[in-house]
Design a protein around this nucleic acid. Sequence first.
DNA 1: GGTAGGATAAGCT
DNA 2: GCTTATCCTACCA
Length: 194
Amino acid sequence: MIPLPPRFYARPTVVVARSLLGQLVVSRVDGRRTVGRIVETEAYLGPHDPACHAFGDRRTARTAALYGPPGTAYVYFTYGMHWCLNAVTEAEGYPAAVLIRALEPIAGLGTMRRRRGAAADRALCAGPARLCAALGVTGVLNGASLARGLLRIVRDPAARRVRVNVTTRVGVTRAADWPLRFLVGGSRWISRGA
DNA sequence: GGTAGGATAAGCT
DNA sequence: GCTTATCCTACCA
């Protein structure tokens, strides 16, 4: 289980978003091991992307982690009740990231079901807030490295062979026509996508 | 199969 | 006050 190194993330955000498809997210939160394969991502390009939290280069307490080194977790709270997980990309100081939108559950399914309540397996990790609940990801992980610690993204050699589909991003109202959502072709684990 | 409305809080104008 | 990178339930077909 080799974690993806910071240099993996220190590339154009679109490249990172595509390259993350097929890789594995491994959580050890609360001493429970849960693992999922990334099947859906979205790119948020930074100060010039109207849908990015750091649009206009506005640095606030909330967006501080976006300015951290590549490979940092940016975990934000939204809609009053949901957490969402991003991987920070590009050079340190440049606020861009990839939102992890859906996982194929691989291990720790019992823990995921318990954390998610009564949910069908198809819906365990099919959505950015759903997968955070399933893996136990909350704001305490905001700013942490994804190369070590409780939450890691590790390399899966099979990721090289995934077929990539591209669509517009889900739920965004600005720059809604930008083709920055990336999906593993044929996967049955992707989010519904509004 | 689908869609409408509500929950709930930080950030912005 | 209004919006938001969401999800769940209830309801209709």
